[in-house]
């Protein structure tokens, strides 16, 4: 039987959750025995090359590209897992949600004291750039999500236990320490 295939991505996140994945330390050697990776920043594969079993999503959706990537993940992954606060609730990026996007852009590119070189007063508008959404959306407000791993970031042990349990087809053992957040 072929190994399960895992894909991961970081949308509007800080890569902290991916760091937490790497934080499984030497178990990473066990992991590559257990699974294969497809699209992921870990192996730098940019596009899906096949159907995947598990998709891990870090970060919420702050622009149109995030939405497309997320939808792509939903299409190619049997099971989609949100990893961390930003994916589940928007997290820090969502702090802008109470401010109109126009104000945010003007503050960032025109009015802020740190703006020194923008004499033509341009807000970046190249067609290549993803378009910012009116607010940061948690992923489950866009596509159907199967599982949620809370934390900022979720502990490496929580990610590990969840992945292994899912692959072994059993319920994860979520000890108190794994889901304690203070």
């Amino acid at each position: 039987m072929s190994k399960p295939v895992v894909a991961t991505t970081s949308l509007a996140g800080c890569f902290g959750c991916h760091m937490s994945i790497l934080d499984i330390d030497e178990r990473i050697l066990d992991l590559i025995e257990l699974v294969e990776f497809d699209k992921s920043p870990i192996n730098d594969i940019k596009t899906f090359s096949r159907e995947c079993d598990i998709g891990l999503i870090e970060g919420g959706c702050c622009n149109s590209e995030n939405v497309e990537v997320l939808r792509d993940f939903r299409k190619h992954c049997k099971t989609l897992i949100l990893v961390g606060e930003c994916a589940i609730m928007g997290g820090l990026p969502a702090l802008r949600n109470n401010i109109p996007i126009k104000e945010c852009l003007e503050e960032a590119y025109l009015n802020s004291p740190s703006v020194t070189e923008n004499e033509e007063r341009i807000i970046p508008n190249d067609d290549e750039l993803p378009i910012i959404l009116n607010k940061v959306y948690p992923c489950q407000e866009i596509v159907k999500i199967d599982y949620y791993l809370p934390g900022c970031p979720p502990r490496a042990d929580l990610i590990w236990e969840t992945l292994v349990a899912l692959i072994e087809g059993r319920k994860p053992k979520l000890d108190y320490e794994l889901i304690k957040y203070d």
Binding site: V67, E68, I101, I123, N125, L133, N134
Partner: peptide
């Protein structure tokens, strides 16, 4: 089974107006 009700066109409308861009959505 599922419909999030998310509307991408509506979600980018404000930013398109602010930056005077025409959206090219897939």
């Amino acid at each position: 089974d599922f419909d999030s009700g998310f509307d991408l066109e509506a979600a980018i409308k404000d930013a398109c107006e602010a930056t005077q861009r025409t959206p090219h959505l897939h």
